[in-house]
Design a protein around this nucleic acid. Structure first.
Lengths: 237, 237
DNA sequence: CCGATCTAACCTACCGATCGGTAGGTCGCA
DNA sequence: TGCGACCTACCGATCGGTAGGTTAGATCGG
């Protein structure tokens, strides 16, 4: 396992490019994996649900295909009837999460003209997305996205491009706010955008479903706190 | 598991000289592993430095003992002459990082009476600790601490106890600020403490040594931004 | 000053377990 | 009769770790 070629060659048999949106999201209080084209059968859905859970609980590398097979009550060979490879499993799960992020956060945000309200919506919706799943380990996607380093170079870059797209949305919103004089003095939009995302993502690590505060309370707290951190005094309602 | 428990002293018999110790932001541009007790020999030091770098670059599970041996230019069996097990390597590295955190952040903070200045010192010094190492992957420790899940139950709990100690320091400081009316209205100290830590830790993920802003600039940005987020209007200088 | 002895610092060669993945079947249903 | 949904049995590679050396240099009594 020397440096550059950590993993075997990515089998890009043409399924990477035009078909980035693999899975449409569903609203669900359990792990929500939908009935998209690639996930037509209930069995397939079950596999992805259990895999994402295990990846979150144990990490991608620490989870074996046998672990996943056992969870789905199937043999490993049976599992490979539905799945091309372990990396494929990870890539699909990550893309599912990114689809959700774009549909629930990015797309609605782009429809909001006022940058202050847009920023508020982004923070609130992203937190809502992360917190919606009542797992003892937090939202699967938020944690599994971190495992993108296990992907081959092309797929990893595809994931990173979508991450960057989200980051730029926030950063551009902050630039717009600065131009209007609504950003706190001296605050750099890039640093501020990263810090906001950090505070948001961190919630997936510490929040537990049966905590003292409800999800909505936590969301309002973090939203208020991050907005006050970057907006000029008196602007943040 | 359950091997010889080579206990590392927490070194909490701190000398509180009553004066706030602000550590200089840029102290060392390489991986700084102390020449302390258990790392007496230069060879041993080399092993831990390379191991922590590889754990950060590839993750704990994805790094094999052969990888580490190769980096140190030794055979795997030779590596085991210095190291008890892979988990031991991880545990030592994590504890090294926690020692640093307590010596550079927690202990100096406990010497500061004013909660506002204490909070500012905590944020600044923690960011300084994280950013000091000029690695393309950020401070090794900050990332490796996340791998504590790979530890056995006892060791994992030991790490988590020290994490909790740090969290409570911040949370108690926020409670103290609230009692003085210096916290923003309606802000919950627990949520605020987590969010501050999130913004701090996130820096290790996005900052690159040759970025547009200097480390000191970034530190000041995040410090100002997080303080303004939680303190009452007009209080955050 | 001279061997004899000891030890830290490595080495080669190997272990059983487990990894991701596959070949080639069986079986029930359309 | 065909096919999707599985199965048993196995592959080569790699994993963390070990047994049992070799070797250079410090340490020792005489």
């Amino acid at each position: 396992m020397a440096g550059p070629e950590r993993r075997k060659k990515p089998r890009l048999t043409g399924d990477v490019d035009g078909e980035a949106r693999i899975i449409p999201p569903t609203r669900d209080m359990t792990y929500s994996l939908p009935s998209g084209r690639h996930l037509a059968s209930a069995r397939r859905r079950e596999i992805y649900v259990h895999a994402s859970r295990l990846f979150v609980e144990q990490g991608y590398d620490a989870t074996s295909m046998s672990d996943i097979a056992r969870a789905v009550k199937i043999t490993k060979a049976g599992l490979y009837h539905f799945v091309e490879s372990k990396e494929d499993l990870l890539f699909t799960i990550i893309n599912w999460g990114m689809d959700e992020l774009y549909e629930e956060v990015v797309d609605p945000a782009r429809a909001v003209e006022d940058p202050r309200e847009r920023l508020r919506l982004i923070i609130r919706n992203h937190l809502s997305n992360i917190g919606r799943v009542a797992s003892p380990y937090g939202n699967p996607v938020t944690r599994v996205v971190d495992e993108a380093s296990a992907l081959g170079p092309e797929r990893r870059r595809a994931v990173e491009d979508r991450k960057r797209g989200y980051f730029e949305l926030i950063r551009n919103t902050l630039v717009q706010l600065r131009d209007r004089g609504e950003l706190a003095d001296g605050i750099d939009p890039t640093v501020a955008a990263h810090s906001i995302i950090g505070a948001i993502m961190w919630m997936a690590r510490w929040r537990r479903p049966r905590g003292r505060l409800s999800l909505d309370e936590v969301i309002e707290q973090i939203t208020a706190l991050t907005l006050q951190g970057v907006l000029a005094a008196g602007v943040a309602d």
